[in-house]
Design a protein around this nucleic acid. Structure first.
Lengths: 229, 229
DNA sequence: CAGTGGTCTAGACCACCAT
DNA sequence: TGGTGGTCTAGACCACTGC
């Protein structure tokens, strides 16, 4: 069996975690490493490229490769559909449409999504339940200029997120997390007290430079978002 | 100029975003694509592999490659050091140690970090200020069995996070986000009202299977964590 | 079983950039 | 300007897995 890029990557990573290659230290060049490991340079290259992508090492032409002083700590989060999220918990998912209205986009939304004046938008309010208990409150705006079909969908059975995923092939997005205080309305929807701290996700989605949708997802009391890295 | 893997990746991605390759559709195999694009199979392979890593397409031996039905939505978050985070904002950073005590690890911590009975830990409480205003409250526990040197550091000038980054070469971690309600102590430290909603990050760090540290970072009122993807 | 992706190789050219 | 990483090529073998 020949030496794989996984072997090389694991070995180098071990040398780093065990302090044999301390932060800031320079590493041999690819040609030398290839000789050491008895493999092709391309194999070393792939191992090193992945370590660089992972933020463990830093590479620069001519300057060579060094172990990062402070590893770039980054984490990947999956952004699940609510339905999947709930069903993964082993709970039964239920969706409910609370309100639906097509109207002129309010000023704050126009500003936030860079919509043209007089843009029309579809405003939806929905609830997602896990085993009958409130799980997530969804407050969504859909840009009707980009998604005219949305106006002919009543969203009574299926949530707008699932519809959008199917309708918009691929898109860029900005996501942000914050803590908010439950106002009277949210407290009632989510079955908690007014003033409770709730975890909220906001997401803006774009398709070929044009705003598709803006959504504010407020989770039930005590919700946590977790990941490993 | 030859065809680069970036060219191939961009072209395929364009075909997907423009609906030419709709979700769920099968794509040609690598050999055919290489002929189409007039490049080597390895070039196509790298383009496709990156698209798969990005969650755009799905690849299986023998079954071939298809555009994902629902793109795997995932986001990468940078986990910055507080100092960097604040200085990036253009503000002046200040650190203050509030409390420091070496003691037997409390039961909940032993359970959470899987520490041995009678494990000792260093408990630190710190504050981080941006332009003199409270920015983040840090409540940290360091496992003295793994980091005995920590006991001889008074952490008066430098925060434990910066020390740990330098002392522990590399590590695995679990991170979680949630919203919490400010109790009297937090409210006072962060200069907000009792009962306010605050954004909190918890992180557990491991080195070679052993717990290194547990930290609870509570941000000032209104803090947002944002990323693009 | 046979088609597809996963990976390695040996060699080559080139862009970048520290010195 | 020379060393280093970035990438492409053409060919090869193999692991996986749907048929």
């Amino acid at each position: 069996m020949s030496v794989t890029y996984r072997d090389v990557k694991a070995d180098i990573l071990a040398k780093i975690t065990q302090g044999e290659l301390p932060p800031g230290s320079a590493m041999p060049n690819e040609v030398d490493l290839a000789v050491d490991y008895g493999c092709a340079r391309a194999t070393v290259n792939r191992a090193m490229r992945e370590l660089a992508d992972d933020g463990i090492i830093e590479r620069r032409r001519k300057a060579g490769t060094r172990v990062r002083m402070a590893p770039v700590r980054q984490a990947r989060f999956g952004i699940p559909l609510v339905r999947q999220e709930i069903e993964t918990l082993g709970a039964t998912y239920r969706y409910a449409l609370v309100a639906r209205a097509a109207l002129a986009a309010p000023d704050w939304l126009r500003a936030r999504l860079a919509l043209e004046p007089k843009a029309r938008a579809l405003h939806l309010t929905c609830m997602h339940y896990a085993d009958g208990m409130p799980y997530q409150h969804e407050d969504r705006w859909i840009n009707l200029a980009v998604n005219p079909d949305a106006e002919y969908n009543d969203f009574a059975e299926t949530g707008p997120n699932e519809w959008l995923v199917a309708a918009v092939p691929f898109s860029n997005a900005e996501i942000s997390f914050q803590a908010v205080t439950a106002d009277a309305a949210l407290a009632e929807y989510l079955g908690c007290g007014t003033g409770e701290a709730l975890f909220q996700v906001e997401r803006m989605t774009w398709w070929e430079g044009r705003a598709v949708t803006f959504v504010r997802l407020t989770h039930r009391r005590g919700h946590r978002m977790t990941t490993q890295y």
